[in-house]
Every structure is written in structure tokens, then in C-alpha cells.
Amino acid sequence: MINILMGLFLATLISELFTTRLYRLFAWYAINSLMLGLIAIYNGNKIDDSAMIIAGILTLIFKFIIIPYILKYFVGHFGINRKVTPSVPIHYAIILVPLMLVFTFYLITPIIKNFTFTSNYVAIAISALFLSLVMIIEHKDMLSKIIGFLSIENSLFLLGITATNGMPMLVELGIFFDLMMFIVVINLLFKYQGEQ
């Protein structure tokens, strides 16, 4: 089950890279967060960690529902152009993505024995980080960059729940709080100037 969710997590992230419409990008991000939330709940249930289950539910509420909705509201309210064109052409990106995945699995090979069941997940989390960074690099408009940053947050969270079997609660709550503050700052930036 967790392998399927993990695969879908990576697949949705890759789809984000190839998207050229803003609403579709938000939708992929929402599905990506849904997978992440389900992974957290499933993993938390498996190792009997209530903190992880709570974090998973919070992920579903914030990242699956609230954040995409707020971003969509921004687009409507501030009249932002909905066409986003990646500066790396899609046929090059198709070559780049598998190369990155292979590289991260190669990177993780020496420690594959240390983590009996999570080593692949560590590799997927690192590759998700790299893919999100590619997304920030290849887009010029601000909201796509923000989705790239939010995807980095997702990959961080995935790493936290798979490699370490749960971060301390204080850190997880801190991350959520910072995410909300991040959205508030974006709102303030849009409100007083409009997108450049």
C-alpha cells in the first residue's frame, strides 16, 4: 500500500513539472499533498505513532484543502495570468527527470543496508527535493515558484515521516506554523503591490 502511495506521490510531483496551466498545477499539488497525508496516516498507524497521524490529518486539512484554495483565490483576486510556461522545454525535462531519479538512488546505495524498509523512501524524498528545485528554476512566474517551494516542504515532510519515523512534535508544529506565516506574507506582498 505504502509503495503505491509513494509512487503516486512521485508521479504527481513529476506531473507538476510538465504542467502549463496554473489551476492544474494547484490540482497536482493538492493531489501530491493528499498522497503525503495518506502516507503519514498509514505509516503512523503502522508504527502506532499518534503524533504522525495528527500530522497527516493536518497535512490533509492545510495542504490538500486550504492552501490550494487560498492560492486559487489569489489568482482570481489579483488577476494573475493562468498560463505558465516552463523555461526548460518539456522534452528535455522528460530526459532530466529519470536521470535525477537514477542519481538519487545511486546516492543512497551505500546506506541501503542501514535502513531495512525505508531506504527507497529516503531516495524518493531526496529526488522530490531535486525535482522541486528544478521546478523553481524552470518557472519565471511567482506562483509556480511558490508551488515549487511548497513541494520542497512536502518532500521534507516525506523525509521526516519515512527516514526518521516521525520528527519531534514541536518541529512538525513549527513547520506548519511557518507554512501559514509564509502564506500570510505572500498575501501581504500581493496585496500591496500586485505581481511584478
Binding site: K145, F149, S155, L156, G160, V185
Partner: peptide, 25 residues
């Protein structure tokens, strides 16, 4: 520049957290 800082600063800070989680693991 505020937008630029938001993006660069947020990437930098995310990389720091990513590293921290790996070190914790």
C-alpha cells in the same frame, strides 16, 4: 527584491531543514 528574497530565503531555509532531517535520521 522582497519577492526575490522570499524565494531564495525560503529555498535556503528548506535546504537547511532537509539537511537537519537527514542528520537526525
Amino acid at each position: 527584491e522582497a519577492w526575490k528574497y522570499l524565494i531564495v530565503g525560503a529555498i535556503a531555509i528548506s535546504l537547511i531543514l532537509f539537511g537537519i532531517i537527514l542528520m537526525y535520521a
